[in-house]
């Protein structure tokens, strides 16, 4: 029933105003249809229109990531000058300590054990440490090293002497006399060695203290910064700002990084931020 049109109704409907889209509207729709097919056949490698921004966004993201990574790496690396001065000072101190210890041990052996003077060259492991540091330019390690070779040689001599004494030699008196001569010679040499060692240790100690006293101002400042670490954050920031004002930006950056590690939640005022960041 409903599928059959009512002719009267249809006639009335057809008699209504004959509405049609404007030519302009037609052209807009047909142009859109053409654009859609053109876009469908465009090469995939060169997307057009609204997809172009992907490329610039990706390039900007890569750039930002690279800059951030570089800055992060720079902040993580320690200052090579500070590391070098710290390591050389540590080496000098270690050498002085070892020389002192060796000298004291020798002295103790010679003075407190007169009976052991006959065999004063027991293996001493201490001098081996400076020997491993043969590349170091300081003169202090040379003494234990020379001492070690001497100790070894004389120990061999002593062993040879003992072996000779144990042998049933036909002439024991000349052997005993020779042995006492050797012992006297070794004792004299040992005394000279310990005096020389003490002098060298004293010299090394004075050199180290002089180095510490007259070290470069940069390392002094670094030590000062290291000592300032437990100080109040305001004072620490003042030091950083002072470094920045003196143009020592690398040190200021490093100190600022340390500060941020020590006080991660500290909020900088705008004025202080400008002073410590130098921006």
């Amino acid at each position: 029933m409903a599928d059959e049109r009512d002719p009267k109704l249809s006639q009335h409907y057809r008699s209504l105003e004959a509405l049609e889209p404007s030519r302009e509207l037609d052209q807009q729709i047909l142009a859109a249809a053409h654009r859609a097919t053109d876009r469908a056949h465009a090469p995939l490698v060169a997307p057009a229109g609204r997809h172009r921004w992907y490329y610039s966004l990706a390039a900007a993201a890569v750039l930002v990531f690279a800059v951030a990574l570089t800055m992060h790496i720079e902040r993580q690396q320690p200052d090579p000058e500070a590391a070098a001065s710290a390591s050389s000072a540590q080496n000098e101190q270690a050498r002085v300590d070892e020389a002192k210890a060796a000298a004291a041990e020798k002295r103790g052996q010679l003075e407190s054990k007169p009976a052991a003077r006959a065999e004063p060259f027991a293996p001493d492991p201490k001098p081996q440490a400076p020997a491993s540091d043969a590349a170091a330019p300081a003169p202090a390690p040379q003494a234990p090293m020379a001492d070690e070779t001497r100790v070894q040689r004389e120990a061999n001599n002593s062993q040879q002497g003992a072996a000779a004494a144990a042998k049933p030699a036909p002439s024991a008196a000349p052997a005993r006399a020779a042995r006492s001569l050797q012992v006297d010679e070794m004792r004299a040499r040992s005394d000279a060695d310990s005096a020389q060692q003490a002098a060298q240790a004293e010299r090394a100690r004075s050199e180290v203290s002089a180095m510490q006293r007259y070290a470069a101002p940069e390392s002094a400042e670094k030590r000062a910064m290291a000592q300032a670490a437990p100080e109040k954050p305001e004072r620490w920031l003042e030091r950083i700002a002072e470094l920045r004002s003196r143009g020592k930006h690398a040190e200021a950056d490093k100190a600022l990084a340390e500060f941020r590690r020590a006080y991660p939640d500290y909020r900088l005022s705008e004025v202080m931020r400008e002073r410590v960041e130098g921006k």
Partner: peptide, 19 residues
């Protein structure tokens, strides 16, 4: 991809759909 086919189709239905 035949845009001429669309033009024919559009011409055929534009007025009725518009009304």
């Amino acid at each position: 991809g035949d845009t001429a086919a669309f033009e024919t189709l559009y011409t055929r239905h534009r007025a009725r759909l518009y009304r």
